[in-house]
Structures are given as structure tokens and as C-alpha cells.
């Protein structure tokens, strides 16, 4: 199986971090993975996105132009990438920040008020991990086991307090039904 994922939003929403977490998780499951960020001038105050591929086979091109799963964390990203999603693909929409619904009917759309959920839970910077939790549940791109091990790899020991709240955010998204 190969899952091509695109995560897109504003710079500062943790788009690249969520992607890095996902790639690391795939690697620790012995899958082939790649992670490629956008690195243009648009990153400064504008939109940011990253391509992640998780596969049982070697990864060819690391560029995701037709995602199986799209996480859209702001309206410009949703507008830009909705049509790129493969038919039958899944989109995960932060419905706190994106007012509209998906226009396409051949994709599964999931609406998660991630920014509001994060603010209510006192972890306002972690909407990215909430929406990622939901994506992992619905796509099965990686398993939901041993998340703490992955966190320990990418959060420095000096900031260990962040591990628990990141896990809390992932679980909130994973368990979200709506």
C-alpha cells in the first residue's frame, strides 16, 4: 500500500511538524517514507505545505501532486488543493477556520473543528495534531500504537512536557466523531 498525503495551512500552524511526525511514525513501522516541505518565499506569513509518502515499496518521486489524503488547515489551502485529491480520496478540514464544505462529491470530507477543540482543551497550538489524529484513524496510513515513542524521537528532551499534550491532541482527534 502507498498513501500520499498533503498537509497544508498557514506558516506557524505546525503543518511541517505534523508531517514530520507522520513520516517518523511510518519509518518506525519499517515502511518507506519521504517528507518534502514547500520552501518558497510563501512560507513567510503565507501558506506552508508538505508532502508525505508512506509506502510498502520504495518511494519514487517525493512530490505529492494528487494526494490520497489532504489535511487543509486554512481556506486558501483548501481552495488550492481540493481538486488535486484523487477520486475516492479523503480530505480533513479544520472547520473552525474553513467556512465552506467540499464541492466535490467523489471524495470523503471530514470536518473537524480542530482549532476550537485545541483552544477549549488549553492547547491552542496543537490543532495540527488533533486533525492528524483523525486522519490516521480514517486512512490507516500508520497505526495508532506507540505514539509516545515517535514523540520522543522528534521532541527534544529539554521540552519533554510537550510530549504529553501532543499525545492528548492526537487522541482527541482520533476519538472525534462528528
Amino acid at each position: 500500500m502507498t498513501t500520499q498525503i498533503l498537509i497544508a495551512g498557514f506558516g506557524g500552524q505546525g503543518v511541517l511538524f505534523a508531517g514530520k511526525f507522520l513520516a517518523y511514525k511510518g519509518m518506525l513501522e519499517d515502511k518507506q517514507v519521504s517528507w518534502l516541505p514547500s520552501y518558497g518565499p510563501e512560507m513567510r506569513g503565507g501558506t506552508a505545505n508538505c508532502s508525505i509518502i508512506i509506502s510498502d515499496d520504495p518511494v519514487g518521486s517525493p512530490i505529492v501532486s494528487t494526494p490520497d489524503a489532504l489535511i487543509a488547515m486554512n481556506l486558501p489551502s483548501f481552495d488550492k488543493y481540493e481538486n488535486a485529491v484523487v477520486s475516492g480520496g479523503k480530505v480533513f478540514i479544520d472547520s473552525t477556520l474553513i467556512g465552506r464544505k467540499a464541492q466535490r462529491t467523489d471524495i470523503d470530507a471530514y470536518y473537524i473543528p480542530a482549532t476550537k477543540m485545541a483552544a477549549d482543551a488549553g492547547i491552542p497550538t496543537l490543532a495540527n495534531m488533533i486533525i492528524l489524529g483523525k486522519m490516521i484513524k480514517e486512512t490507516g496510513a500508520v497505526s495508532f500504537e506507540n505514539m509516545v515513542d515517535v514523540m520522543k524521537k522528534i521532541v527534544s528532551a529539554k521540552r519533554a512536557e510537550l510530549i504529553d499534550i501532543n499525545i492528548k491532541a492526537l487522541e482527541a482527534g482520533y476519538n472525534y466523531e462528528g
Partner: peptide, 10 residues
Amino acid sequence: DGTMGQMMEP
């Protein structure tokens, strides 16, 4: 090239 420099892989 820029892709090789920026991308992450195991």
C-alpha cells in the same frame, strides 16, 4: 538539487 536538499528520508 533543492528537492534532495530539503526532503527528509530515513
